[in-house]
Computed example of a mutant assay.
Amino acid sequence: MADEINNIRHDHSQDDVAFLEKELRHISGIIKQRGRQILNAYTITPPQFVALQWLFELGDMTIGDLSNKMYLAFSTTTDLIDRMERSELVQRVRDEQDRRVVRIHLLKEGERIIEEVIDKRQQYLKDILDQFDQDEAANLAILLKKLHQEMKKN
């Protein structure tokens, strides 16, 4: 019985779906715009920020892995890494087990920038969430987590 309940698909009206898509698109745009305003205080570009974020979250990775995560061409990612290496945000490191493999390693300055920017982004979100009561914020967290999990399945 529980499996049957979990497999039930709810019919959602096209208007409801359109409304949710529009709201999520607008929220995403506002977050992106605020993120770029925060980045203006730093010497990195938005694509560099995204690359630093992936390295911060996942650790050292190859240019190929980073290219795939960022949906960029290998050559574009190589140019991005070259610029970030000159700014001493990252460095190329040969793999100990396989010297043919080169991994990108996040340096202290890159880590510092990521931590500061993320802190400022989180403070912005906290300021917005202060307009929600605890139940609203908890429900939002639960629903966003569920939405994210469902999206990762597809």
Rank of each mutant, 00 (worst) to 15 (best):
M1I: 09
A2W: 09
A2N: 14
E4T: 13
I5E: 13
N7L: 13
I8Y: 11
I8C: 07
D11V: 12
D15I: 11
D15S: 14
D15N: 11
A18L: 15
F19N: 15
K22M: 14
K22S: 15
L24R: 13
L24D: 13
L24G: 10
I27H: 11
S28V: 07
G29Y: 07
G29I: 05
I30E: 15
I31R: 07
K32Q: 12
K32G: 12
K32R: 14
Q33V: 07
R36I: 07
Q37N: 14
I38N: 02
L39S: 03
L39Y: 01
N40S: 13
N40K: 12
A41Q: 13
T43G: 09
T43N: 13
I44G: 03
T45I: 06
T45R: 10
P46Q: 06
L52V: 04
L52R: 00
L52H: 02
L52P: 01
Q53T: 09
W54Y: 08
W54H: 07
W54C: 04
L55W: 00
E57A: 07
G59H: 06
M61T: 02
T62A: 02
I63H: 00
I63L: 03
G64D: 09
G64C: 04
L66G: 00
N68H: 06
N68K: 07
N68S: 08
M70H: 01
Y71C: 05
L72S: 02
A73P: 04
F74H: 13
S75K: 11
T76E: 06
T77H: 01
T78D: 01
T78L: 14
T78Y: 15
D79I: 12
L80M: 09
L80H: 00
L80C: 01
D82W: 08
D82L: 12
M84L: 05
E85L: 02
R86F: 04
R86S: 09
R86M: 08
S87P: 03
E88V: 04
L89R: 00
V90T: 03
Q91F: 04
R92K: 11
R92F: 03
R92Q: 04
E96H: 15
D98G: 10
R100D: 15
R100L: 12
R100A: 10
I104K: 00
H105T: 10
H105G: 04
L106D: 01
L106H: 02
L107V: 08
K108F: 12
R112N: 14
R112G: 06
I113T: 02
I113F: 03
I113H: 00
I114R: 00
E115V: 09
E116H: 09
V117H: 00
I118C: 02
I118D: 02
D119M: 06
K120L: 06
R121V: 03
R121P: 01
R121H: 05
Q122N: 08
Q123H: 05
Q123W: 04
D127G: 08
I128V: 07
L129S: 02
L129F: 07
D130I: 03
D130C: 05
Q131E: 10
Q131S: 07
F132V: 02
D133L: 03
Q134F: 11
A138N: 13
L140H: 03
I142W: 08
L143N: 11
L144F: 10
H148P: 08
Q149Y: 11
E150P: 12
M151A: 14
K152A: 13
K153M: 11
K153H: 12
